[in-house]
Design a protein around this nucleic acid. Structure first.
Lengths: 185, 185
DNA sequence: GGCCCAGGTTAGTGGTCGTTCACCTCCCGC
DNA sequence: GCGGGAGGTGAACGACCACTAACCTGGGCC
């Protein structure tokens, strides 16, 4: 709740602009202008425009995985773990709509190293979900469980794109759809 | 099954490239090269790079809506209509992975007129789904039905991104998830 | 045979964008 | 008070890219 640093301000405004117009559709001049500074001042805070994107996407991938693991840890059944994961993912998606949009649109614009980092974090996160699904149904094979998790992300991540309902209603609707989709409702 | 015209070849090649690297990440030279011609020859077939994108996206929006309506017409219950819609959407997504990816990534790069056209076609398509959902549950309000349809698209459209299972298995998995999500399984 | 035009070609142009450079200015520690 | 670094500025540069211009070519048609 402290006043955000310039660096954080840049990250937030960049996320908003990237979400609306795409990484390549936003010039560094635009980001600067939206922060009240102009153009090349960004380079006092980030090595490059790519590095800015990388920090956004690596950051959210780490947070999704880290908190996801915490929630699973705190749950006392596979069923409860899945419920907690859906709840967590939905909270994140509702609180960081911009980042969700940027993540699955501009992932391919990342420099190689960051792209690999995000990829492996995402794979780990998918497997947190997939393992819970397989605990619940031991006959489910690993690839099918991963595909199921992926489908759930697609479902939950639809919320930043549609935005048709108040957050609470959207949360309840998507939570129910996801759990019923898993067959655990 | 006739040999594709140069025009169709360009459309298909462009779709593949756009899907992999994004609209702004592909140069007209790249598209030409991938077709065995080079650079500005494209302008003998399309007015601009934007127009090429527009033709891709307007085309798929029209086809999704048109066939969607046909399938609903042929169904004899709301339940059967939803089943047919899921089946149709899944067939389309599996057959046109590239276009699905391009549609929800590069929609914002469309010129104004085409963007409005796609938007209104998509809204109509969403409402085809939403109306069926409300026939099934008359207490569901319109915005919630639309959000539900939107979520289903997110779920079904995850398949081009994940591609973890053979088509038949993926189809079965997602079909089941969608219908259970609707609460009609 | 001669016209023509659909569909290529290469060279060039204007604009945009990421990034660098040289410079300025305020504030903070000694 | 004064030196220096953090953070800002505008100008310039080099790359890239969509698009245009001018030109070539070969096959169908009268």
């Amino acid at each position: 709740m402290t006043t955000p640093t310039r660096r954080e301000q840049i990250l937030a405004t960049a996320a908003a602009l990237f979400a609306r117009r795409g990484f390549h559709g936003v010039a560094v001049t635009d980001i600067g202008a939206a922060c009240g500074i102009s153009g090349p001042a960004l380079y006092k805070h980030f090595a490059s425009k790519d590095a800015l994107l990388a920090e956004l996407l690596v950051g959210i991938s780490e947070e999704l995985l880290r908190v996801g693991l915490e929630r699973v840890e705190a749950a006392d059944s596979p069923r409860a773990a899945l419920d907690a994961l859906v709840d967590w993912h939905l909270s994140f998606a509702l609180d960081h709509r911009d980042l969700i949009v940027v993540q699955d649109r501009d992932w391919s614009s990342l420099p190689d190293e960051a792209r690999e980092q995000v990829r492996s974090l995402q794979r780990a996160y998918v497997d947190v979900w997939a393992d819970r699904l397989r605990e619940l149904d031991p006959d489910l094979d690993l690839e099918a469980a991963r595909a199921t998790a992926h489908a759930a992300f697609g479902l939950l991540n639809s919320t930043p794109h549609s935005a048709l309902l108040p957050d609470a209603a959207m949360r309840e609707l998507l939570h129910g759809m996801a759990l019923r989709g898993f067959g655990v409702a």
